[in-house]
Amino acid sequence: MKRFLKITSLVLGLGILFFLLFAWVKSEPLPEGNKGPEADALAQKMLATINMERYKNTRFLEWTFRSGANHFFWDKVLGICKVKWDGYEVALI
């Protein structure tokens, strides 16, 4: 019984060590952003592109992608998003 526990502990320990090593090797550093007037100008351009004031005053957003295979309907006030794909329909609350 002691031998079984030793072997199980060793295998479990090696598995955890392998997982941690794999996660460390595959991790990427977070991107660093730029500060200053260029970054602010880009942010303002993005807000103008999406028309931020209209977005704030819009209750419902609806969009599709993958040639209409995935369909989303989001009610911002109720905080509900309905998702449809491949015959499935899910309400995310």
Rank of each mutant, 00 (worst) to 15 (best):
K2C: 08
K2I: 14
K2Q: 14
R3H: 14
F4S: 11
I7N: 02
I7R: 03
I7D: 01
T8Y: 10
S9K: 10
S9V: 10
S9E: 12
L10Q: 13
L10W: 12
V11K: 11
V11A: 11
V11L: 12
G13K: 01
L14F: 15
G15F: 01
I16K: 09
F19V: 09
F19L: 12
F19Q: 12
L21M: 12
F22P: 08
F22V: 13
A23V: 06
V25G: 00
V25D: 05
V25Y: 05
V25C: 03
K26T: 14
K26V: 13
K26Y: 15
K26N: 15
E28A: 13
L30F: 12
L30H: 07
P31I: 00
E32C: 08
E32I: 04
E32S: 12
N34Q: 11
P37C: 06
P37G: 03
E38C: 02
E38L: 02
A39D: 00
A41K: 07
L42Q: 05
L42D: 04
L42S: 03
A43R: 00
Q44E: 15
K45L: 09
M46R: 00
L47F: 04
I50G: 00
N51I: 05
N51D: 14
N51T: 07
M52H: 08
M52V: 14
E53N: 07
E53T: 00
R54Q: 15
R54F: 07
R54P: 00
Y55G: 04
N57H: 05
T58I: 03
T58H: 01
T58N: 02
R59E: 11
R59K: 15
E62C: 00
W63T: 10
F65Q: 03
R66L: 08
S67W: 09
G68A: 04
G68S: 03
A69V: 07
A69S: 09
F73R: 10
W74K: 03
W74P: 06
K76C: 09
K76S: 10
V77G: 02
G79Y: 04
I80W: 05
C81N: 02
C81F: 06
C81K: 01
V83N: 02
V83L: 09
K84G: 03
D86E: 14
D86I: 04
Y88S: 06
Y88W: 11
V90D: 05
V90N: 04
A91P: 02
L92W: 09
L92C: 08
I93S: 11
I93K: 10
I93N: 13
